[in-house]
Amino acid sequence: MHHAVMDRLSMQSTFLHHLDARTKLIVAMIFTVFVISLPQTSISFLLVCASGPFAMLAFSRVPLKLASLQILCLSPFVAVFALSMIFYDTTPVKPAFGPLEFRATAGVLRCIVILVKFAITMTTLIVLSATTRFSDILAALTWLRLPRILVMQIALLHRYIFIIIDRTCNVLRARRGRKFRNLGIKYELKTAAGMLGNIAAFSTDTACRVSMAMAARGFTGSIEPLIKPKFAGNDLLFAVCFAIYIAVLFVIKGIV
């Protein structure tokens, strides 16, 4: 997957893309808190909760394959944590699904719950980032009163990530083209240090050029976001729909 793919997805035009970044950020946060605070045993209810982010994923035209790959790439740490539950909690339990009954341990159930919760919250985050332009996120962060220097830092970081990563990809390609086997830790370390040093020197040179260019354009130490975030009717409608969805989930939780 190319590193700029999420950036390209956020440039689309759907109902979700036109919403205010603050509305999406707050909704994502409330939904994450709701999912995480669910008990460790309610797998069936978690699957009901997954319907919301899945619908948003479909509406926002994010390819399902890309979202699944993204979740799989990020899951090793969670997978290790979840799998450890199987070995430490061996209390026997007998879960039932309709007419089917299974024999399992509480650890297995907890492991599945953790993985499902991870998938749901990650899907929420994927929808948020794939439907929100970075400039809108910056405007929302400014509205959230984040320190000026931090917002500026995030803006510059995002602006140059792709340039430096492209440069690094070139350096890595050059190493691959010249190296056909493992050369031993000492030589590998020396090569890696050389490559990193080269990229660090390139980064500082770029920083010098950018600094001069910014000074020439009258940079006074602060960047004002051009976009002023604005709540609209669509945001209100989305917030009301989300509130109804959460209320329905609470009702289902009582039944399940």
Partner: peptide, 23 residues
């Protein structure tokens, strides 16, 4: 003021540096 771009670009460097693996 001149160091602000350096901070931003070194942040990007940290991202890129995480791609340079060694066995």
């Amino acid at each position: 003021q001149e160091k602000i771009p350096l901070m931003g670009i070194l942040g990007a460097f940290i991202f890129a540096a995480q791609m340079v693996n060694f066995p």
